[in-house]
Structures are given as structure tokens and as C-alpha cells.
Amino acid sequence: MNKLNIEPLQVEKASLVIRDNKEGENEDGILLIISGEIDMRDPSVAILPYLLNIHDALIAHEIKTISVDFSNLNYVNSSGIKTMISWLMKSKDVQSGKGYKVKIIRNGDIAWQESTFPVIQKLFPDVVTFAEE
């Protein structure tokens, strides 16, 4: 079990797993691995509560960085993007000093990741960074 005590989530073709991140600069960080496909009708019901649970736990544990590994997320529909934005807006709303950064691990071979993530980063320049590829 990870330090946030959050179980994995499997919903339709999508899988979300939390792990403690032991690598490099993020020794105190958390790694969220999102894989499969997010193409369900309403991810705001299926997935957003899980992400908000992670948000609350990050704040409670005063963790400053979460890495999110999307490298095996093959597809996300616009409702899935909406769900990610809802989460990122929540992290942006946290009072300064108490928030956390979201480091995106992406896969340049997957078309949607190449075209969608730069727009998300542009929308949340203070929150979202990219891991080196």
C-alpha cells in the first residue's frame, strides 16, 4: 500500500494506480499511473471522485509533487479531458504554499498526448510540468 492509503481503481477500460515515488528528486512524492482507455460516458462520475480523493490526501500529507504517468493511456475522450481539468483546477485553487505540482509523464508515440497535453500545460503553467522524455 502507498503512503496515501489509496487503493487502485479499475473502471471500464481504465486503470488508476497510486504508488510511492522513490525516484530521484521526488523521494517524498507520489506516482499515479493512469493506463488503458478513458472513453466512458461520464468520467466525472467514474474517475473524478478518485482524483479528488488523491487531491485531499496530497494536501493532508503536504506532498508537493505528484507524477502522473500517462504513457500507457492510449485514448481519452473530451469528457476525460474535462475530468482532468476539474482536478487541475482544484489543485490550482489551493492557497499558495499548500498546493502541489503535477508532473506529467507522456508518450510521444500516442497522438492525443502530443496534441492535448501542451494545451493543458498552457492552461495551468504554474501547476503542470512535463517529465523529461
Binding site: 473530451s78 474535462k82 481539468i85 476539474s86 483546477m89 494545451v119 498552457k122 492552461l123
Partner: peptide, 13 residues
């Protein structure tokens, strides 16, 4: 791009 970013923000609420 502007319309897309605005839609992202609006859709979330």
C-alpha cells in the same frame, strides 16, 4: 486555441 482553452475551463464547471 483560445476557444479550446476556454471550453476546457468552462466544461470543468
Amino acid at each position: 486555441l483560445d476557444a479550446y482553452m476556454k471550453r476546457m475551463k468552462d466544461s470543468a464547471v
